[in-house]
Simulated scan of single mutants.
Amino acid sequence: MTRKDGAWQFHDAGPGSADMAEARVVSLRSMVERDPTVGEILDLPPGGRASRGAPGGRWVCERC
């Protein structure tokens, strides 16, 4: 998900259910290196969301 200020957030659960105790600040580049399919959604507009059912699955975008 991209925030309105242009920052990205990655969660392994639904919105609002991320555990802040496990939160980390990482670069977008490192996320793309970990999962190259993140490159498919780099054009998300601010406030846009993308999700998928499983790693490697097809991205489903909202407000893309």
Rank of each mutant, 00 (worst) to 15 (best):
L44K: 02
L28Q: 05
V26P: 06
V32K: 09
R29N: 08
P55L: 13
R58Y: 05
G56C: 00
C64Y: 02
R52C: 00
F10I: 14
W59H: 05
S30N: 08
G53H: 08
I41W: 00
R58Q: 13
W59T: 04
T37R: 09
Q9S: 13
G14I: 10
S27A: 03
V38H: 01
I41E: 00
S51M: 09
P46I: 05
P46H: 04
G57W: 02
G47L: 08
C64F: 00
M1R: 15
R3I: 03
C61E: 10
G53I: 05
P36C: 03
T2K: 15
D12W: 14
A23M: 11
C64W: 02
E33L: 15
P36A: 04
D35R: 14
A50G: 10
R58N: 11
G39Y: 07
L28N: 06
M1P: 12
T37P: 04
C61W: 07
H11Y: 10
A21D: 11
G14F: 07
A7F: 09
A23K: 13
R58H: 10
A18D: 06
V26G: 05
R34I: 07
M31C: 12
V60Q: 12
E62Y: 08
R24G: 03
E33T: 15
P46S: 06
D5Q: 04
D43K: 08
R29D: 10
S27C: 04
R52L: 02
G16M: 04
D43I: 04
R24E: 12
P15L: 14
L42E: 05
T37L: 10
C64S: 02
D43M: 02
D12Y: 11
M31A: 14
G48A: 03
S17V: 02
D19W: 00
S51H: 13
V60H: 12
A21G: 12
E40H: 11
P55T: 06
I41L: 03
L42R: 12
V60I: 11
R49A: 09
S30R: 12
G57L: 01
G57I: 01
G47I: 09
G47F: 09
G48S: 01
A21K: 13
D19N: 01
D19P: 00
A23D: 05
G53C: 04
G6V: 01
R29F: 01
T37D: 10
L44Q: 01
E40I: 07
A50C: 06
E62F: 10
F10L: 15
S30W: 08
P55C: 06
I41D: 01
L42D: 03
E62W: 09
C64D: 00
L28V: 13
A13H: 09
F10V: 15
W59C: 04
E33D: 13
C64L: 01
P46M: 06
A13E: 13
G6P: 01
T37F: 03
G48D: 02
R63W: 05
M20W: 10
P55E: 08
S51R: 14
G6T: 00
D5Y: 04
D43R: 07
V25E: 12
Q9M: 15
E40L: 14
G6A: 02
R29L: 11
F10S: 11
G57D: 05
E40D: 14
P55K: 06
V60Y: 07
G6H: 01
R24Y: 05
